[in-house]
């Protein structure tokens, strides 16, 4: 059973990660994917950005520097989470302690995976994102807060509205289990199946 995973407000230190098109290969390199569990992925998260070839921390990487090593929020570049469907990227980010990623837009599969795991992805304008990048870089150590209900980010005196669709918002607040919820529609699914075109009734040869 999935844990209840979200309060309505996320507070914490935000780290700027302004690179565009950060893909899920970068978030979770493939050598960490040879696993049959969801656990143990914190070390793999951003591994090639965080560590050099010998496994030493790269001192210049933002999440290795104080105060951002305490960050639980990322402010990210355009199209974060593009590429592969691997949910391991989201599992790893959650295990590393990341609760939210603020950006201008996210790749679709990553966005859906995030919702399933209580990772909030507030979507803001480019200008607001740049403001937050500056804020998180310059006002280092000062917490920002993300209110999921009112869809507002507060950084010091700055208030920024964000977009989030209703089902994602509901999902984050309730921390529900989609599979079990959907099974309440068992009758509707059965009814749909009875009308299914025979041509679509796949029966894969074993």
């Amino acid at each position: 059973m999935k844990e209840k995973h979200m309060n309505t407000t996320i507070k914490g230190i935000a780290a700027p990660l302004p690179l565009a098109n950060v893909d899920t290969d970068v978030i979770m390199p493939k050598r960490f994917l040879i696993t049959i569990t969801r656990e143990g992925l914190a070390d793999g998260t951003f591994a090639d950005l965080r560590f050099d070839n010998t496994g030493q921390k790269r001192p210049e990487f933002i999440l290795n520097k104080a105060p951002w090593k305490q960050a639980n929020i990322l402010v990210v570049g355009d199209n974060f989470g593009c590429g592969s469907s691997r949910e391991h990227a989201v599992w790893g980010m959650r295990q590393l302690g990341i609760n939210a990623c603020i950006g201008t837009g996210f790749a679709g599969i990553f966005y859906d995976n995030a919702r399933k795991n209580g990772l909030a992805l507030p979507i803001v304008s480019s200008e607001s994102r740049d403001t937050l990048l500056e804020y998180s870089k310059n006002k280092s150590g000062e917490e920002i807060s993300i209110d999921i209900v009112s869809q507002t980010i507060k950084a010091g005196e700055i208030l920024i509205p964000f977009e989030m669709d209703t089902s994602t918002q509901t999902s984050l607040i309730r921390g529900r289990d989609d599979t079990l919820d959907t099974l309440e529609y068992t009758n509707a699914i059965h009814n749909f199946e009875t009308q299914l075109d025979d041509r679509m009734r796949v029966n894969v040869i074993k």
């Binding site: 469907s85 691997r86 995976n113 599979t179």
Partner: peptide, 11 residues
């Protein structure tokens, strides 16, 4: 994603 794979398998 994998959570959705579970969802398709079950529903």
């Amino acid at each position: 994603g994998t959570s959705e794979v579970e969802h398709v398998l079950a529903t």
